[in-house]
Simulated assay, not measured.
Amino acid sequence: MAAVPTVKLSGGLKICRVLNGLWQLSGAHGTVDEAQAVEDMQAYVDAGLTTFDLADHYGPAEEVFGAFSRQLKSRSSPGSAPLQGLTKWVPGRMGGMDRKVVERAIRRSMTRMQVESLDCVQFHWWDYRDKRYLEALGHLADLQQDGLIRELSLTNFDTQRLEEITSRGIRISSNQVQYSLIDQRPAVRMEEFCLAHDIKLLTYGTLAGGLLSERYLGKAEPKSRLELYTASLSKYKKMIDTWGDWRLFQDLLATLETVAKGHDCSVASVATRFILDRPAVGGVIVGCRLGIAGAEQHISDSLLSCSPELRLTAEDSAAIQAVTQRSGDLMALIGDCGDEYRN
């Protein structure tokens, strides 16, 4: 098995270019057996996919990661590939942001994840009018200096706030944003800034919750809750509706299928590879299938998407972009990255 490609963040942490997302454990995707989830994570690590993306508000995700990490250590032999856990801190909208509050949140994640320091903290903030985010980030930077955090990162911050934060001397390793063939807003402003400041983009929604797959090619538009049965499907179907319509989406899927057949791979692999090839993108977060059938194919698609064997040609990219350029302007319709959470 070829090694999964990695990328080094500014603080030195190496992560896989395909990250295993644990949003599934948030409770918004149905009931999950936690013990089974711990067991199922092993298949991803065995495949070389050792980087997990989680959050303090993804249900029991931090505890599940901690239990798996402890189990993995008991099984591992010397020289085994290390595990990386990138968590998020999403503070509530009320309350202070003094050092005690910030440190308490970080130590809570450390306890849950059963680690002595956090590989990466990805900070989210709800309202830019509330400038306490700068206070919180200052304390996080101090905790980083104290050794409790290795990489200090952001989640869903826009380019203007990235500029503001870095201008204060706070080193940001990455920003997690939505980036897909549907949502290409990071290419408008953010990529250029990130390239200039050694900030990697970690992208989610790249497969639109599974909508960017053969499963939906040639199918009638899903509209009911029964059809859009997970938080991801509902969320990204709304994004497709803003981007264009179901007919245009079908044109995109048909084009992706043609490209995929030319490379003997899946639509998902092509959609992921397209984003991995974008400037400033360090890695793509693909949701895990824990306790769900089809995990083997899911892992295989992820491995192929980041394999050097899959190289999209200029003709492939041109064919895909010929479709996406017919869509609406999401920067004009929504705003910069993350604005959908604040409008």
Rank of each mutant, 00 (worst) to 15 (best):
N156V: 02
G92A: 09
Y128D: 02
T155G: 12
P82Y: 04
H57N: 13
W243R: 07
R161Q: 14
L217E: 14
T87V: 04
G30F: 03
G244F: 09
E227I: 06
Y236N: 03
A105N: 11
D53Q: 12
T255P: 07
A28Q: 14
S232K: 09
L154N: 02
S167T: 05
V121D: 09
D142H: 00
P78T: 09
I165G: 03
D40N: 12
G92W: 11
E39C: 14
L290W: 12
R75S: 10
I165A: 07
F249A: 10
W23K: 03
Y179R: 01
R247D: 14
A28Y: 14
L49Y: 05
S300D: 09
N175S: 04
V267K: 03
L140F: 12
R289F: 07
I15F: 07
T6H: 07
P60S: 02
Q160L: 08
R75G: 01
D198M: 02
S167P: 00
V286K: 13
A35M: 03
L83F: 15
G138C: 03
K235S: 11
L118A: 15
S234C: 00
C265N: 09
D339A: 15
L211Q: 11
D53T: 06
R326V: 05
L143T: 00
K237T: 06
L228Q: 05
P91N: 06
S109A: 08
S180I: 04
A47C: 01
W243Q: 04
S317A: 09
L134H: 03
T313H: 06
T324F: 10
H197W: 07
C288M: 10
Q24A: 10
C306E: 13
G282E: 13
G287H: 10
S117Q: 11
E315K: 11
S167N: 13
K100L: 01
E257G: 09
K8T: 06
E63G: 05
D245H: 11
E340L: 12
D301M: 04
L162R: 01
M190F: 01
C288S: 13
L333M: 11
F52C: 08
P222K: 02
S327V: 10
A35E: 13
V18F: 08
D329M: 00
V286L: 15
L49S: 03
R189P: 06
S109N: 07
N156A: 15
F249L: 12
A196P: 01
D33S: 11
L134Q: 12
K200T: 02
A37C: 06
I170T: 12
I320N: 14
E39K: 15
T87F: 15
T155R: 10
I172K: 11
A136R: 10
S74M: 05
V121N: 10
R99F: 14
K223W: 03
C16D: 15
G338Y: 12
G291A: 01
G30N: 04
D146R: 14
I106F: 05
G12C: 08
D56T: 01
